[in-house]
Amino acid sequence: MAGETILVVDDDSDIREIISLYLEREGYNVILASDGKQALEHALSTPLDLIVLDMVLPYLDGIEVCQEIRKTSSTPIIFLSSKSTAEDKSIGLIAGGDDYMGKPFESIELVARVKAHLRRNRLLDTLSYSNSKNSIITYPGITINLDTYSIVANGQPIIHTNKEFQLLSFLMQNPNTVYTNEQLYYAIWGTESYGDIRTVMVHISNIRKKIELDPQNPSLIQTIKGVGYKFCS
C-alpha cells in the first residue's frame, strides 16, 4: 500500500540511497539514518510501518537499537548484515528482529520482503479471529487481547513483537494441538517468507522468556520431542 513509512538505517550512503530508490519507486515514504542514535531518534518520534536496520552501526549498533525499540514498539524490523551465519541470524531474531538478510543482497528481494511484512501486518490489523468467539483469551497465568494486541502474563504486561503475538495467539486459539516447526512457520510467516524454520525455534524461546515462570521448564508452551510445540490449556 503506497504511503507507508519505512526507516532505512545504514552507515553506507550508497546502500541507503539504493534501498531508498527502490522503496520510493513502490510508493513508500522513506526516512534515512546513518547511525544508531539517529535511528533511535526517528523510531521513537515518528510513526513507522517498518524498519530496515543494519546490524553494524556507529554509536549504537543495530542490536542495541532493536532492543530499545522493542521496549515500546512492535514495528517490523528487517536486519541487514554482512554476517550471515546461523548464529548471527539467531542473535538478530532474539533481539527482536522479524527478518534477516545477509549482505550483499538483491534489492528486488528486499523489496519483496518489505511488501510481505507490510501485507501481513495489514491483514493482522483487520484480521477476524474466526477460531475465537471472544477477543480475550485467558488461561491460568496468561491473557491475550486480540483487539488491543496485548499480552498479560503472571499479572505483568508483556512487551512483544508482531510475530511473537501472532505465534502465541495462534497456539492459544488451538490449545493442546501439536504443531511442527514447518506448520507454525507456514501459519505465521506464510509462503511469502524467505527465512527458515529455525526462526520458529528462536521466537518460541523468546516468548517463553516473557510468559513462563520458569522458561527452562515451560508449562504453557511445551516441546513435544521430535514433533513440535503445543500450548497447554
Rank of each mutant, 00 (worst) to 15 (best):
D88V: 03
G62Q: 05
E68C: 08
T85S: 15
A86V: 15
I63T: 10
F79W: 05
V65P: 02
K83N: 07
A86I: 15
P76Q: 08
L53E: 03
L57W: 02
L60M: 14
K71G: 02
T85D: 14
T72R: 01
V65W: 07
L53V: 05
V56N: 04
I69V: 15
T85M: 10
T85N: 05
P58D: 12
R70L: 05
V65K: 04
R70Q: 05
S74K: 01
K89F: 05
S73T: 02
S81A: 11
R70A: 06
I77Q: 02
D61A: 11
T85G: 13
T72D: 00
T75D: 02
M55C: 12
L60F: 11
D61Q: 12
D61K: 11
K83V: 10
L57F: 02
I63W: 07
I78H: 10
S82Q: 02
R70H: 01
L60V: 13
I69L: 01
I77V: 15
T72W: 01
L53N: 03
K89C: 13
S73R: 12
D61S: 04
V65I: 08
C66A: 07
I77M: 10
E68W: 00
K89S: 03
S84D: 15
I69G: 01
E64P: 07
M55F: 00
L60A: 03
S81H: 06
Y59I: 15
F79R: 03
Q67N: 08
Y59E: 15
C66R: 00
L57I: 11
K83S: 03
S73L: 09
T72E: 06
D54A: 07
I77A: 03
S74I: 04
I78R: 09
D61R: 13
I63C: 09
Y59H: 14
D61M: 11
M55V: 14
Q67V: 11
K83R: 15
K83M: 14
I77P: 01
I63N: 09
G62I: 10
E68N: 10
T85W: 08
R70E: 05
